[in-house]
């Protein structure tokens, strides 16, 4: 689904001493099927932004369009239910939302609310736990007896079982072990491709943004600070540092090599192996035979 933000502002607790403008005339477009990373310093408004995607928050001014659904200030949208079925949101620390007696019931909770028939729920549950690598034995256990990492996977399965067209991920791997982080991120990437989802990922990891996204939106103090293709964005190290953001390590490495050796080397998305090969060629000349 195409998504667009048109001059969207959002103010928390308006007309009180605690008034806080968390989004300020934010505008951007996301094409259907894109994988977009939203990055920004803590408190820059990322979570506020994504809550507009399924109508949890309504703009204070401006308009949000998600496919055929429109969300405007001061106007009730009567199709929120349909919108929420299409847009799955994995929140920061989603394991806090678990509540059912068994893992299977918790995963089925979302689709049940949207009136999905029983067999279909069953099929989706199996598909979801397979994707998130939850062992089938766990399905009848209480979600509260699981480890933190397992709980996270169950919560994610619960969102996947809704079979959304748009997947919104708010730091889905925060606090997981490095291997688990990689597994989950790769799983989302696979789903994104296989199901042609539109994915919006909020992350503090520049590495993830570079590895998976094809478009990056950078927020700073509630405004869109920069926007563009990852390789273009990460060329602008100074501009990023101005808003306390880093450049991925690979790119830092390539830049350092280029500066210190004074050679032609550009990061264009090479893998580590490819980079190593290129470097060897530069250092040793063309005498290398693999």
């Amino acid at each position: 689904m195409d998504i667009s933000f048109d001059k969207v502002s959002y103010t928390y607790q308006p007309n009180t001493p605690f008034e806080h403008r968390a989004l300020d005339e934010v505008s951007f477009k996301i094409n259907s099927g894109a994988y977009v990373a939203v990055i920004g310093h803590t408190g820059s408004g990322k979570s506020t932004l994504i809550q507009h995607l399924n109508g949890l928050l309504q703009p204070t001014s401006g308009e949000v369009k998600v496919g055929e659904y429109h969300l405007k200030a001061n106007e009730k949208n009567k199709q929120l239910r349909n919108l929420r079925e299409q847009v799955g949101v994995v929140f920061q620390y989603p394991e806090h939302q678990l509540f059912e007696e068994t893992v299977a019931k918790d995963i089925a909770f979302g689709p049940q609310n949207f009136g999905v028939p029983q067999e279909e729920i069953h099929r989706r549950t199996r598909e979801a736990v397979k994707a998130t690598q939850i062992h089938e034995d766990l399905l009848e256990r209480s979600p509260f007896d699981l480890s933190g990492g397992q709980m996270r996977r169950v919560a994610i399965s619960g969102v996947l079982a809704m079979d959304p067209r748009v997947l919104v991920l708010d730091e889905p791997t925060a606090g997981l072990d490095p291997n688990g982080q990689k597994e989950i991120m790769q799983m989302f990437h696979r789903l994104h491709k296989d199901k042609q989802l539109t994915t919006i990922l909020v992350t503090h990891s520049m590495e993830d943004a570079l590895a998976y996204a094809d478009h990056i939106v950078i927020l700073n103090q509630g405004e869109v600070y920069m926007e563009g293709a990852p390789l273009e964005i990460f060329k602008q190290q100074q501009a990023l540092e101005d808003v306390q953001l880093d450049v991925p390590e690979v790119i830092q490495f390539v830049t350092k090599v280029r500066e210190q050796l004074g050679v032609e080397l550009e990061y264009t998305g090479q893998s580590i192996a490819e980079l190593a090969k290129e470097l060897t060629r530069i250092v040793k000349g063309d005498r290398v035979y693999e």
């Binding site: 809550q51 399924n54 949890l56 239910r81 929420r84 079925e85 847009v87 799955g88 949101v89 929140f91 989603p94 806090h96 939302q97 909770f109 979302g110 049940q112 609310n113 949207f114 619960g158 969102v159 809704m162």
Partner: peptide
Amino acid sequence: QETEKISKAQASRGVD
């Protein structure tokens, strides 16, 4: 805060 967070998460899963 927790109440708000969880009710948003459940609303996203179709609770009205």
